[in-house]
C-alpha cells in the first residue's frame, strides 16, 4: 500500500512539474495575465472603487461572488466539525472534579452529581495543573491588544494588507489564546456555544444580504454602487463602503468558525475540558 501511494505521488508530482513548464515565467511582462488583466485592475481600481489596496477591491468587489462562496466553505468546515464531533459524540462525562478555592481541596463526584454554582467551588479538568500566574497574566494583557490589532486589520484592509479574513482569524486566535492559557470553560463563558453557532451563519448572511440589497436596489448581485442611494454617497465611495460591509461579514464568520473548530477539536465535542 505504501509503495502504491509513493508511485501515485511521484506520477502526480511529475505531471505537476510537466504542467508547470507551460506557465509563463514569474513576473513575465508578456504573459497573458500581465498584458491586459492585471494592468486593468492596477490602473482602474482607484478610479472604480476608491480603494488604494487593489487586492482588497479585487477580492471583495471585482470577484465578490467567489469570496462569498469562500466564506461559505469556511462556514461549512466549522459546521462539519460541529456535526461530526459535537452531535455524534458530545455527552458530558459522568465524573466531575471540583476544587475548593480557599483550601485547594479537590472533590470528585461520580454518577453525574453536581455542586451548584457557588463562589467556593470551581470546576476543574481531569488533567488539572495549578495555573501559572505568569502565563495567565501575560495572556490576559496581550489579548486586548491582539483584538485591537484584528479590528485594525479589518477596518484598514482598504489601504494596507489585510481584510476580513485575516482580521477574523486573529480575532478568533485571541479567544483561542484565552482557552489555552486559562481553560476551555473560561473561554466558553466569554464566547458561549450558542453565540458562536448563531454568529457564524450571521456573518455569511451579512455578505449575502449586502449582495441581495444591491439586487433589490435595482443593480446586479454584489454591485455595491447600488448602495449609493441608501448611504447618501456617490457610487464610487458606495463601492468602498460596500467592501467594508462585506469584510465585516467575512470577519464575523471566520472568527466564529475558528473558535467553533477549536472548541470541538480540543474537547472532542464534549466541551468539558480543552487542552
Amino acid at each position: 500500500m505504501k509503495i502504491i501511494g509513493l508511485i501515485i505521488t511521484i506520477i502526480t508530482g511529475a505531471f505537476l512539474v510537466y504542467a508547470a513548464v507551460d506557465f509563463p515565467a514569474w513576473a513575465d511582462p508578456n504573459s497573458p495575465a500581465s498584458t491586459y488583466l492585471s494592468p486593468y485592475f492596477i490602473e482602474n481600481s482607484m478610479k472604480d472603487t476608491s480603494v488604494p489596496n487593489f487586492v482588497t477591491s479585487l477580492l471583495a468587489d471585482y470577484r465578490g461572488f467567489d469570496t462569498m462562496f469562500e466564506t461559505t466553505v469556511i462556514f461549512t468546515a466549522g459546521l462539519v466539525c460541529f456535526i461530526l464531533l459535537r452531535i455524534s459524540g458530545g455527552k458530558e462525562p459522568e465524573t466531575r472534579h471540583y476544587r475548593h478555592v480557599l483550601t485547594g481541596v479537590t472533590v470528585t463526584l461520580k454518577e453525574g452529581r453536581k455542586i451548584p454554582a457557588s463562589e467556593d467551588f470551581e470546576r476543574i479538568d481531569d488533567l488539572w495543573t495549578p495555573p501559572d500566574l505568569i502565563i495567565k497574566t501575560g495572556c490576559r494583557l496581550m489579548i486586548p491588544f491582539i483584538q485591537l490589532f484584528a479590528l485594525y486589520v479589518i477596518a484598514h484592509g482598504h489601504s494596507s494588507p489585510g481584510g476580513g479574513f485575516q482580521g477574523g482569524v486573529i480575532l478568533g486566535a485571541s479567544i483561542i489564546l484565552l482557552a489555552i492559557s486559562h481553560d476551555l470553560r473560561t473561554a466558553l463563558e466569554r464566547m458561549r456555544e450558542k453565540v458562536v453557532a448563531i454568529l457564524c451563519p450571521v456573518g455569511v448572511a451579512i455578505y449575502a444580504g449586502t449582495g441581495t440589497l444591491c439586487l433589490l436596489l435595482g443593480l446586479n448581485f454584489l454591485d455595491y454602487s447600488a448602495l449609493a442611494s441608501v448611504l447618501h454617497v456617490d457610487p464610487i465611495s458606495a463601492r468602498s463602503h460596500g467592501i467594508l460591509m462585506v469584510e465585516i461579514g467575512v470577519g464575523i464568520a471566520v472568527m466564529t468558525t475558528m473558535i467553533w473548530i477549536y472548541n470541538n477539536i480540543s474537547s472532542a465535542g464534549k466541551y468539558n475540558q480543552g487542552l
Partner: peptide
C-alpha cells in the same frame, strides 16, 4: 504578495498549528 503572506502567517502558521496540536492531544 503581502496579502497572501499575511493570510499564510495567520492561518497556516498560527491557527492551523493549534488545530493540529489539539487533534494530536485528543
Amino acid at each position: 504578495a503581502v496579502d497572501v503572506a499575511f493570510t499564510e502567517a495567520s492561518v497556516g502558521a498560527g491557527v492551523s498549528s493549534v488545530f493540529f496540536v489539539a487533534a494530536v492531544f485528543r
